[in-house]
Design a protein around this nucleic acid. Structure first.
Length: 477
RNA sequence: GGUCUCAUCGUCUAAUGGUUAGGACACCAGGUUUUCAUCCUGGCAAUCCGGGUUCAAUUCCCGGUGAGAUCACCA
């Protein structure tokens, strides 16, 4: 049986956004599902668009997501090199094949002349096709001119796409496109066909924008007498506003930004997969392993999906809650507030346990926990502006705080005993929880929100709680 | 303009030639001894339009409309 070999072949032209990642994810899932191979190839034939450091950005992003490759840059492999600019001879060898068969020729025209042809077609209200202007006796190709493919079979092509279904396009889609540029490097159109063949790729999975070019590829497969792989196109991920495909120009965020915002790789993977794919059940949360087992191309949606950050946030919260405390602790290492630096791990873990249910992203950690690490500044308006507490006189407030301070002094300092003491205090003061607990919570944290009162007090510790209550009492005037 | 593709709640999506068109996010309301969050319950909300086939169409076919992609010595 043929082994499944898929690839991700990005151009190192900048950061990776979620659209790029998804076109790595789906072929990767397919390869892993079938115990096949996943190949990472760098397509750097456009020297003008190269961005320094882009390749390592791609690698970092894939590593973070756990999308690993079996062959490719860094790893190497049987069919290397895996960087296109290092494969020039290979392309030239295949180009020579076409020249020998009379299926490739040197383009004698300057770009101005080609532009003139284009205008001519436009004036005649016809689609521009280079082949309409094909030179009769082109010069021998010496590598200084572009090399063009000569389409001979002008016909309608039909092919099957496992995602999009049966596709077809007429002869208008066929043309004498450039195989090798004047700088000696191949175009994508030529290079990827050669590479996919040499690297024995069985499934080519890429974005929808390639569909109009596929007839060209099919004509080239035929000319080269190559067996065509499965050709699958993925629908676009749409920008949050409008219906346009997500792109860097529309302010698409890099995947690394999401990482820095505290999105978990599991959530990102789950989210991207669920945009355009589902297993037909009502399951929403899928682990990496589940995605690998359940993924299939024929259940991929055909229409574009809008990127909805709120849904990603929700999913991230779900994943945060699923993690064990120790696992979560490892992942939030870089997200603690500055003031947490001197604090021991045990204390931090206790706090983390309290806020695990409250985090939507890891980067929310500081605003949720700062008062555990530093003494909060009292803000008396938090009491006076409070709907219930505002009704109390200052004397009442001080009295309540004093009684709280007293019961909490004489208490086994753990969450359970604290709760018992607080419950007793409700009875002795005759106050409702909405009043008493709110007051203590504010007086100890001065934060707009915090975890359960008894647990919060327990973690902060008796001495600090006493001191904070004392400070609150002094503050109320 | 040519070629090509797509079309279910605001968003991501499920389903079927016969369903009260299902779920999730978001939003709204209520509940869980304070707040925020979690969790639970409930609510709002969709088959683009017009023909045809059929006993029956959201589903199949055709035509519109709308949206998108692409027409580079970019990928």
């Amino acid at each position: 049986m043929e082994i499944v070999r898929t690839r991700f072949a990005p151009s190192p032209t900048g950061f990776m956004h979620v659209g790029n990642v998804r076109s790595a994810l789906f072929p990767w899932l397919l390869a892993r599902q079938n115990n096949g191979k996943f190949i990472l190839r760098i397509e750097d034939t456009d020297q003008a668009r190269l961005v320094e450091g882009a390749t390592s950005l791609i690698i970092d992003t894939l590593n973070w997501l756990g999308i690993d490759w079996d062959e490719g840059i860094i790893k190497g492999g049987e069919y290397g090199p895996y960087i296109q600019t290092e494969r020039r001879e290979i392309y030239l060898k295949w180009a020579q094949k076409l020249i020998d068969k009379g299926l490739a020729y040197a383009d004698p025209y300057t770009s101005e002349e080609v532009e003139a042809f284009r205008e001519q077609s436009k004036a005649a209200k016809k689609a521009f096709l280079y082949r309409d202007y094909r030179p009769e006796n082109p010069p021998i190709w010496d590598g200084t001119k572009p090399l063009r493919f000569k389409v001979t079979e002008i016909k309608r092509y039909n092919w099957h796409d496992p995602v999009m279904g049966d596709l077809s396009a007429g002869p208008e889609a066929l043309d004498d496109f450039i195989l090798v540029k004047a700088d000696g490097l191949p175009t994508y159109n030529f290079a990827h066909i050669v590479d996919d063949a040499e690297m024995k790729i069985t499934h080519v999975i890429r974005g929808l924008e390639y569909i109009p070019s596929i007839p060209k590829y099919l004509s080239l497969y035929d000319a080269l007498e190559l067996e065509r792989p499965v050709l699958a196109c993925l629908p676009h991920i749409l920008a949050p506003d409008g219906n346009k495909k997500l792109g860097k120009r529309d302010g698409a965020k890099s995947v690394q930004e999401y990482r820095d915002d505290g999105i978990l790789p599991e959530a990102m993977l789950n989210f991207l997969a669920s945009m355009g794919w589902n297993d037909g059940t009502e399951q929403e949360i899928f682990s990496r392993e589940e995605l690998i087992t359940k993924f299939s191309l024929d259940r991929v949606q055909r229409s574009g999906a809008r990127f909805d950050e709120k849904r990603l946030l929700w999913m991230n919260g779900q994943w945060i809650r699923k993690l064990s405390l120790d696992d979560l602790f490892e992942r939030v290492k870089d997200f603690w507030p500055e003031t947490a630096k001197q604090v021991n791990d045990d204390y931090k873990k206790q706090i983390l346990a309290l806020v695990q249910d409250r985090l939507k992203t890891l980067s929310e950690l500081p605003i949720l926990t700062s008062y555990f690490f530093e003494e909060p500044k009292p803000k008396q308006e938090m009491i006076s502006d409070n709907k219930q507490l505002g009704k109390l006189t200052n004397e009442d407030v001080i009295k309540l705080l004093n009684s709280a301070k007293d019961v909490l002094l004489d208490c086994n300092y753990n969450a359970k005993s604290i709760q018992e003491k607080l419950n007793t205090l409700l009875e002795t003061t005759g106050q409702k929880p909405g009043v008493l607990f709110s007051l203590i919570r504010i007086a100890v944290s001065w934060a707009p929100f915090s975890p359960a009162l008894n647990e919060t007090l327990s973690v902060i510790g008796r001495d600090k709680v006493q001191a904070r209550l004392q400070l609150a009492i002094k503050t109320i005037k």
